[in-house]
Nucleic acid binder design. Sequence first.
RNA 1: UCCUCGCUAGCUCAAUUGGCAGAGCGAGCGGCUGUUAACCGCUAGGUUCUUGGUUCAAGUCCAAGGCGAGGAGCCA
Length: 447
Amino acid sequence: MPDSIRVADIAQYEGQEVTVKGWVYNRTHKGKLVFLLVRDGSGFVQCVAFKDDIEESMFDQLIRLPQESSVVITGSVRADKRAPGVPGGYEIGVKQVEILQEAGQEYPMSLKEHGVDFALDNRHLWIRMPSQWAILRIRATVMSAVREWLDTNGFIAMDTPILTPVAAEGTTTLFETEYFDEGKAYLAQTGQLYNEANIFAFGKVYCFGPTFRAEKSKTRRHLTEFWMVEPEIAFCDLDQLMEIEEQMITHIIQRVLKDRSAELKSLERDTEKLQKIKPPFPRISYDEAVKTLADIREKEMDREKKELLDFEWGMDFGAPHETELMAHYDQPLFIYGYPTEVKAFYMEPWPDRPEVSKSVDLLAPEGYGEICGGSERISDPDLLLKRIHEHDLPVEAFKWYLELRQFGSVTHSGFGMGVERVVAWICGIEHIREAIPFPRTIKRVYP
RNA sequence: UCCUCGCUAGCUCAAUUGGCAGAGCGAGCGGCUGUUAACCGCUAGGUUCUUGGUUCAAGUCCAAGGCGAGGAGCCA
C-alpha cells in the first residue's frame, strides 16, 4: 500500500482509509463543518471535516486555511452524489490534516472570472484552475495518441533540427538568431524538408516538436510558438495521404473520449459531436468549394456579409469562407487541389492542370478552421529546381534538398497537424492560447 | 501594417445629459451541520492608463501617447 493515493483513482478506495497529498483549491465552512476542495494534480476531491471528529485547534485552523495551502489529508472515502470534483461523486471524511504550508493571503487567482490579460499574466497560477488543468491534461493525451497511432502504423520518429540555415517558404516570417561565425540561423517553421530526406532512409517518418512563426497574426487561431506533428511518407499519393490523416485524427478523438471523459465533462464539452467523428471524411475539391461559396454568396441577402464572402478563383480561403463552408458539415472536411500560386513551392502540380497543386487542407467542424495542411511533393528534380528559381529562393541552400530527387526519387506526401488547434477543437474552447501551458503570442513572452 | 473595441478598488464590472467614486467577489472580524464560484452581518480598500486642453465643474468631452483585446492579411 503506497503512502498516499491519487484522487483520479478514488473510486477504488470506497470504504477505506486513505491519504491524499495536495493543495486546497476551495474552502467553505458552515458552523461545525468545513469543506475543503483538494486537488492533487490527478483530480479534485471534496474533503469534509466535522468539528466533533477532529481536534478543535485543527478545526479552527481549517476554517481559515487559505486557498492553495499544501496539505496531507487522511480520512475515509465514501460515495456521495453531492460531492463535487473531478471525477467527483466521492468525498473524504477527514480524520487528520497535516498543513505543509499555509499559503499567503494574496493569491491572485480567485475563483471568480478574470480578464484575458490578468489571466495570462498569472498563467503560472492559472494552470491550477480546473478548466486549464483539464485542457492541458487533454493536450497531453492528444500528443500521446498521435505518437501511439504513428508508432503502431510503421512510422519512425525522427527529430528534425530547430536551428536551420534557411526557410522552406522565405525568411520573412522567421525568428532570426546569430550562429557563431556561420551568419544567421532561423528557428524552424517546419521540419518537412528534413522529413523528406528521412523518408528515403526510413520510409515513413514523423517529427513532432515546437515550431516558430514570426507572423504578426493576432487571432484566436495563432501562436508564435506552437507544436506540430509532421508525418511524411514515401510511395504515397494525395489520396493515400488523406486516408492517413483521417485515421490519425479519428484515433486521437477516440483516445480522448476514452481516457479524458471526466475532463471533457468538467469543460462542459458536448461529446456527442466528437463521438460522431468517423472516417471517411468528406472530400471536396477547391473548384467545388469555390462553386459552393458562389452559391452561398448568391443567396446571401445581407450586403456586408455578401461583401465578406467575395471570392475569386485563385484566392485562398479566409476565415469567413471557411465558416460558411463548414456550416454544412459535422465531420472534418478535406479541401484538395488548391491553386499552385497560393501554396508552397514544393507541391506537385495536378496532372494536366499546372495551375492546380496536389495539396489538401483539413478543416475541423464547429468553426475551428484548418487543423492540417499537406500535399504530395514534387518528385521531378528539374521541376523542383525551376520552382526554387521562380520563388527566388537561394539554390545553394537547397542543394541537399535537390539531391534527394536525384537518388531514387519517388512519389511522396506529408502533412502537418497543429496540436493546439486540435486541442482547442476537442475541448471546445475559444482561443488556442489556453491549449498550450505557456503561450507565446505576438504581444506576450511572459511568464 | 491596417480596421474596430477597451483601460475605474487585488479581481470582474457599474456610474443617466459633464454635477458627491459604487456593487459583487477577494481580504479581515463574527454567525451557521451539506456547501458546490455557499450564504448572512460588519470593517478596511481609489493617482478612474499617462500628458496636455475645454469647463464653475471631467471617470464622462477634445488632442497626443502608452498598454491590451478581437479581426484582416498570412498560416497549423
